[in-house]
Design a binder for these strands. Structure first.
Length: 497
RNA sequence: GGGCCCGUAGCUCAGCUGGUAGAGCAGCGGCCUUUUAAGCCGUUGGUCCCAGGUUCGAAUCCUGGCGGGCUCACCA
């Protein structure tokens, strides 16, 4: 057994004393009448009234036979004033055995202290949970309305590994995740209002598809077969369109077995939407309306700041075909270039081109290098080369292109969409081209899915599809620099035990 | 995977060119019935990430490893 730390030992001893005093350190319930925020917001009516509140002790100032401390609940903190002659001798003895981190229930009268802080004069104090581990102590002071924090708990490794502590101690972290939840709720409402159906599709898939990425592999014991964790749910949602649903969406956890950095986590969340009888032009309008609506409802404005950059999400967003964007930002016209010429152009631009790259990859590189980082204001990049998009429908005016767009904000794509390919013969050819790439060693090339082709052969109506990266959208709308700051439990290597 | 940086008390951090560790907060003991980074007095607490090496002597220098951050590459 590991040695028990002194601070934990001390708390265990207090726990023992409390039990000896007849206090249940882990009771079953507590009836609370108000949250901290309600007490503050309704102070005028509540002054001198009795309320009950509950929360975790976050500060403690004992002064002989009285004490001030703050408790923190779901939506904030409130100060408790404890006087021995009001709360009683026994409760005061209990109080003396409490620590920062303990969870208590308080019944008492609402009042304002001499310095004007809304507080509760405790008449009853009940221990609701004894905490055995010391919390990082973060002190703060409000000066001119600004919160000054002393010794903030900021070690990223500890914060990510022990997110519960991060959430207790850093209120702004909680805010980010509340916003994440509201972003998803608002998006769901937006889609439901339009009559689209929220559905669920398999996470364990015998054939993975819908994106170009490497999958996680797992094994089904009973069937003794390989299964993949989905990299996308696109092909399943389109099967549902075939089945007669005319608008379906899913908030999907996807899994990609690739590198991690501040924009990538091995598991991440995407919202994918498919709507029958629509094309990508229509989907652009829906996208800009949806994102700006979310910003408006969650943040109260469509003008946001991301990492110091001012961004205006108000529709309409700029539409810019891919080749035009490259002409504009890289100064070269490659709309008619073949692979040989592309190779030369890329080299002239200073890009190291690898022999295995096809023209799609080269174009993507030029775009990623010269264009994408400069697209700060929301922009739809449209009309991608055919070979980069095996599931998108050919462009109605140019068969070398597909009808696809990516919304780009703050230099980063936050989604992907197209007029969905519904010609089963064309789809088969595209899959076959992918298989050839795979044979050449491209591990991210897509896999041919016979059942999906069979579904298309029954006939899928013209359909527009959209995927939005929820994590990236949340980063944008909460001004967080890393995807780890918008995922509660980002992937980490195992802790040494 | 490459480069740079980091790992010292529960938390935040000092510890210069080597002499086996220190502060603030928290904790513990004492005083204090409107404090608020409460205050005053006293005080406990460390496998200096791990393993080797150099040295009379390593938190400090070297090598390797582990974990993390940033970044580049890869990657939607």
């Amino acid at each position: 057994m590991e040695e028990i730390h002194q601070l934990i030992q001390q708390r265990r001893e207090k726990l023992k004393k409390l039990i000896e005093m007849g206090v249940n350190p882990y009771p079953y319930k507590f009836d609370r009448t108000h949250t901290s925020r309600q007490v503050k917001e309704q102070f005028d009516e509540l002054e001198n009234q009795t309320v009950s509140v509950a929360g975790r002790i976050m500060s403690n100032r004992r002064m002989g036979k009285a004490a001030f401390f703050h408790i923190q609940d779901m939506d904030g903190r409130i100060q408790i004033y404890l006087k021995k002659d009001v709360v009683g001798d026994f409760a005061f003895e209990v109080y003396k055995l409490l620590d920062i981190g303990d969870i208590v229930g308080i019944v008492g009268q609402v009042f304002k202290t001499r310095t004007g802080e809304i507080s509760i004069l405790a008449e009853k104090l009940e221990l609701l949970t004894k905490s055995l581990r010391p919390l990082p102590i973060v002190k703060e002071k409000i000066v001119d309305g600004k919160r000054i924090v002393y010794d903030p708990f900021k070690d990223k490794e500890l914060r990510y590994r022990q997110r519960y502590v991060d959430l207790i101690v850093n209120p702004e972290v909680k805010e980010v995740f509340i916003k994440r939840s509201r972003i998803m709720t608002t998006m769901r409402e937006f889609l439901n209002e339009r009559g689209y159906l929220e559905v669920e599709t398999p996470i364990l898939q015998p054939i993975y598809g819908g994106a170009s990425a490497r999958p996680f592999v797992t094994h089904h014991n009973a069937l003794d077969m390989k299964l993949y964790l989905r990299i996308a749910n696109e092909l399943y949602l389109k099967r549902l369109i075939v089945g007669g649903f005319e608008g379906v969406y899913e908030f999907a956890k996807d899994f990609r077995n690739e590198g991690m950095d501040r924009f990538h986590n091995p598991e991440f969340t995407q919202m994918e939407l498919y709507v029958a009888y629509k094309d990508y032009h229509w989907m652009m309008e829906l996208t800009e309306e949806m994102i700006s609506t979310i910003a408006e409802k969650v943040l109260g404005t469509t003008k946001i700041t991301y990492q110091g950059q001012e961004i205006d999400l108000t529709p309409p967003w700029r539409r810019l075909p891919l080749f035009e964007s490259i002409r504009e930002y890289a100064g070269v016209d490659i709309s008619q270039a073949d692979e040989e010429q592309l190779r030369k152009v890329a080299k002239d631009l200073g890009i190291e081109v690898e022999d295995s790259w096809g023209s799609g990859k080269i174009i993507d590189e030029i775009f990623g290098e010269f264009v994408e980082p400069r697209l700060i204001q929301p922009t739809f990049i449209t009309d991608y080369p055919l070979e980069m998009s095996p599931l998108a429908k050919k462009h109605r005016e140019n068969p070398r292109l597909v009808e696809r767009f990516e919304p780009i904000i703050a230099g980063k794509e936050i989604g992907n969409a197209f007029s969905e390919l519904n010609d089963p013969i064309d789809q088969r050819e595209r899959f076959e081209a992918q298989m050839e790439l795979r044979a050449k060693g491209d591990e991210e090339a897509q896999v041919l899915d016979e059942d999906f082709l069979r579904a298309l052969e029954y006939g899928m109506p013209p359909t527009a599809g959209l995927g939005i990266g929820i994590d990236r959208l949340t980063m944008l709308l909460t001004d967080q620099p890393s995807i780890r700051d918008v995922i509660f439990f980002p992937h980490m290597r195992p802790e040494k035990s």
